[in-house]
């Protein structure tokens, strides 16, 4: 196994120096660009000296540590892909730093160019390091970042204490459940990064990225994370009602249907208004809903399985997680309900 490891190390070492810059560029395009190309969620924008300056001034080890360990401000560790080798992440950082050469303190920016190329292969193949003339200056600069976050802490005294606490690995496993299931930085990715489009297809890269369309639209907490009904109401979007006739307008029907529901949930108010802004009567009636009060049996189970409201809600319209958007009519207090039928029964 040792020889295997040595072989692998030799291959990596041989490939590393010229390949590393390319790896950094590739990784940037594949992962980092999602946020760093546009500056989403406060990410320092690629090529923006104003964004990068203060970070570079904090020292290169700090910048590397942030990329590798993540930050409280939103940078996920290794861009959210823990499988990435440290060297690649650093190469991507170098790629981004190269675009803002000269920003920040020059003393801090200088090792940015030197350190990674030397340091990364050194880490991958410590056994081979002895055979290489060590670049003392770059090595010295690289040491702190090679260690844990704790090691990098003294090198960056300016870091806020909260950041250090988060960077510490202790307790990371005990609380590793991700409450959001889908972290914020993975929402609305560009087609090439979304997992179903094929990045190898040239057409994929010609498609519009959702976020470029969503700017300025009212947000919501589910689905596309756009409140489409409000977007239409505020005239932020102007979808045609007819394929070709730009002047065609929908016939809006403003009629609420209240459905009393079992259990403690508030009753459901179904608004025809919002639905007729988007849909034709024939879309729902009579195939999905019999247009007669009390004639439709609807349950959350059937909705979850894609029937009734679930034909759209949970697929393209807001999902069932948004309970209160439908269950919006407060029931009378239980005491009042219990009293009300009593006199009638007597």
């Amino acid at each position: 196994m040792k020889t295997h490891a040595a072989t692998l190390a030799a291959i990596l070492l041989a490939a590393a120096p010229p390949a590393l810059a390319q790896a950094g560029k590739d990784l940037y395009a594949k992962t980092c660009a999602v946020c760093h190309a546009t500056g989403i969620a406060g990410a320092p924008k690629y090529g923006s000296a104003a964004d990068w300056g203060p970070r570079i001034a904090a020292g290169l080890p700090k910048v590397y540590a942030n990329a590798l360990k993540g930050t409280a401000k939103g940078m996920p560790a290794k861009g959210g892909n823990p499988a990435l080798p440290d060297a690649d992440v650093k190469a991507a950082v170098d790629y981004m730093l190269a675009a803002v050469k000269g920003a920040g303190a020059p003393a801090a920016a200088a090792p940015a160019k030197e350190a990674p190329a030397k340091e990364a292969p050194a880490k991958e193949a410590p056994a081979k390091e002895a055979g290489r003339p060590p670049p003392p200056k770059a090595e010295a600069a690289a040491r702190p970042e090679a260690g844990t976050a704790a090691a990098s802490a003294p090198a960056a005294p300016a870091a806020p204490p909260v950041q250090l606490a988060l960077a510490a690995p202790a307790g990371a496993e005990a609380n590793s459940f991700n409450r959001l299931l889908k972290p914020a930085e993975k929402r609305n990715p560009a087609p090439a990064d979304d997992g179903i489009h094929d990045p190898a297809n040239d057409g994929t890269h010609a498609l519009m990225a959702p976020l470029s369309a969503y700017a300025g639209l009212p947000r919501s907490l589910a689905g596309n994370r756009i409140n489409w009904v409000e977007a239409l109401g505020q005239k932020k979007i102007d979808p045609r009602w007819d394929r070709t006739d730009l002047k065609a307008e929908p016939v809006i029907m403003d009629m609420n249907v209240v459905r009393e529901v079992k259990g403690s949930m508030p009753d459901v108010v179904y608004p025809h208004k919002q639905h007729t802004e988007w849909l034709d009567c024939s879309n729902c009636h009579p195939a999905i809903f019999v247009p007669q009060k009390g004639a439709n049996s609807i349950s959350m189970a059937s909705i979850l399985l894609g029937e009734k409201c679930g034909v759209c809600h949970g697929k393209v319209a807001f999902p069932v997680s948004e309970c209160r958007l439908c269950h919006s009519k407060k029931k009378e207090p239980a005491a009042a309900r219990a009293q009300a039928p009593a006199p009638a029964a007597k």
């Binding site: 993540g70 939103g74 590793s176 459940f177 959001l180 972290p183």
Partner: peptide
């Protein structure tokens, strides 16, 4: 879609995304 998520529970999240959460 909701039904897709019901049928296929989300894959285990890597530690990095967990910390992000």
């Amino acid at each position: 879609s909701t039904i897709q998520k019901l049928a296929q529970p989300a894959a285990p999240q890597p530690a990095a995304t967990a910390r992000k959460g």
